[in-house]
Design a protein around this nucleic acid. Structure first.
Lengths: 249, 249
DNA sequence: TCTGGCTATCTTGCATACAAGACAGGAAAG
DNA sequence: CTTTCCTGTCTTGTATGCAAGATAGCCAGA
C-alpha cells in the first residue's frame, strides 16, 4: 500500500524504499547499492545511508563486501532452502495457532485475492510478484502480532530475491490457487488444514525453483578444490567470499 | 558456548557482548547504554558503537530516546504477550516440522538438561536464567536452520528482559520439568506432542508473570486522561487490530 | 598475443567536529 | 518556602575528512 517514492528526507525512508522496491521486484538481487549514490538520491550524508544499510544487513536484505560495496543479497541455494523452511515453520505455526477469522480479516483476504486475479488478468508480472508475497504478510497481519509480521515481511523479501534468481517461469495461477485454497480452509474455520495447505503451497513454490543452475558459478571449481561451501548463516559472521558483481538494473 | 566478554576490539563484539549479557541476565531492562562509555570501554569511536546500537535496535533489543540515550528495552505488557505468542508459534511450528532426533541432538539436549540440574542444585540463579533460555535456542539449533536460530535467540533475549520486569519469583524447577518433558517426547519421536508441551510450557511461564504491576507507572493516569496507550509496534505500520490469542493447541 | 605490475580512482571504514536538544541545578523573584 | 527561568553540561544527530583496500586500465616486457 504505502508504496514509497522518491526522497522525502524524512527518516527511515531509505530502508523502507529499498525493502518495498524488493517486495515489488523492482530491485534485483546483486544490485549494487552505493552509499554515495543513495546519499545524493536521498539528499542526506553517507552517515544516514550507512545506518540504513546496517539495519538492512541485520535484516538479511543486503550484505557488504568490505571496501567493495553494499549489495542486495543473492541467496545461495542453501540459504534459499533455509528461507523456505523458516517460512513453512512460522506460517504453519501461525495458522495452526489461529482460532477465528474475523469478518474484517475475511474481507481483507478476499479483497487481496481479487487483486491477485485482476493482476493475473492484466498480466502485470511485477505487481503479481508483489501480491503473491503480500498475501502471506496479510495473513500474518491477521494475528495482530507485529513481531511475526516483521519477521515474515523480511522473509518474504528474501523469497522474492530467491525467485528472481532461481525461478525460471512464474506459475502465478498455481500460486493463486494455493492462496485461494488456504483462504477457503480459513473461512471454514479449519486452521489445521490451512496450515497444511500453506506448507504444501510453499513446497510447491520451492519445487518450482531450479536450485542447481544459477548460483555460485564457482561451485564446481570450489568442490573440486575441496574448499568449504558458501556460508549459510543469516546472522553474523558471513565471510566475504566470491566477487559476485552486480547485474543489470 | 562462545560466551564473549571484555573488549577484544575485534569487530561486532559490542553487539554480541550486550546480547550475551542480557541472555545471562547480567544486564537489566532499562539499562542505559551510553555511546561514550561503550566507546571507551571497547576502545573504539562512537561511530562503531552507534552501528552496533542500530543493529540491536532492529533486533528489538535496545531503543533510543532521541537526544537522551540508548536503553535496553523494557517491554510493555502488550509486547510481552506478543513475544510469548511469537515464541509459541515459532517453537511449536519448529517442533512439529521435525522428523528425527539425531544422536548428537539427543546428547546435546541431555547434556544441557544436566547443566540445568547442576545449576539448580547450586542455586546459581543467573546461570539458571541463561540455561532456561538457552534450552530453546538449543532446540532451534537442532533444526540446523540459522534463520530460525537467530530469530529465537533475539526473542529469548527479550523473554529474559520480560522475566526481569514481571517475574516475581523464579519457578526454575517447573521450567526444568517442562524442558524434560519436551525432551522425552522428542526422544520418543513424538514431535507433535513435543510441540504441544512446548506451547504448554511457554503458557506456564507466561502465566507466572505479573503483567499488571510493574510496567508504565503512568498507565493509570494515562487511562484516566484517556490518552492513547504506549505504542506496541516493533516495526512500521502495523495497525492494532484484535489480539485473538491462542491457547493450548 | 599474453603476462605482470604500476597507478589512478573509487569504494567503504572509522574517527572526529560541531550542532542541537534534554536535563539538572542554582539563582532570583514572588 | 515555592516557583520560574536561565545557563552549563551532557546526550545523541549528522556531516565531513582522511585512511586503506579493491579494482580497472594502461603500459612495458617477453
Amino acid at each position: 500500500m504505502q508504496d514509497s517514492q522518491t526522497s522525502e528526507t524524512t527518516q527511515k525512508t531509505i530502508e523502507e524504499t529499498i525493502v518495498s522496491g524488493i517486495l515489488s521486484a523492482k530491485i534485483r538481487p546483486g544490485t549494487r547499492l552505493s552509499e554515495n549514490q543513495l546519499a545524493t538520491l536521498f539528499s542526506v550524508s553517507r552517515t544516514r545511508v550507512r545506518e540504513a544499510m546496517m539495519r538492512l544487513e541485520t535484516r538479511g536484505i543486503v550484505h557488504v563486501s568490505p571496501r567493495r560495496g553494499w549489495f542486495v543479497v543473492e541467496p545461495s541455494a542453501e540459504e534459499a532452502i533455509a528461507v523456505y523452511e523458516a517460512r513453512r515453520v512460522i506460517e504453519a505455526g501461525l495458522l495452526r495457532s489461529m482460532r477465528v477469522l474475523t469478518d474484517e480479516g475475511r474481507k481483507a483476504l478476499d479483497a487481496h485475492l481479487n487483486e491477485e486475479k485482476t493482476a493475473m488478468a492484466a498480466g502485470d508480472r511485477q505487481r503479481l510478484t508483489y501480491l503473491m508475497g503480500d498475501f502471506h504478510i496479510r495473513i500474518a497481519e491477521l494475528s495482530g502480532n507485529a513481531i511475526i509480521v516483521d519477521i515474515l515481511r523480511d522473509l518474504t523479501a528474501r523469497t522474492i530475491l530467491i525467485s528472481m534468481l532461481y525461478q525460471s517461469e512464474f506459475h502465478a495461477a498455481q500460486s493463486h490457487d494455493g492462496h485461494c485454497r488456504i483462504f477457503e480452509a480459513m473461512q471454514a474455520g479449519d486452521f489445521v488444514r490451512a496450515a497444511e495447505l500453506s506448507v504444501e503451497h510453499l513446497d510447491e513454490v520451492e519445487m518450482g525453483l531450479d536450485l542447481t543452475t544459477r548460483p555460485d558459478p564457482l561451485s564446481e571449481l570450489r568442490s573440486s578444490l575441496s574448499l568449504p561451501p558458501k556460508a549459510v548463516s543469516s546472522g553474523p559472521t558471513v565471510k566475504p567470499k566470491k566477487p559476485q558483481l552486480q547485474r543489470s538494473n
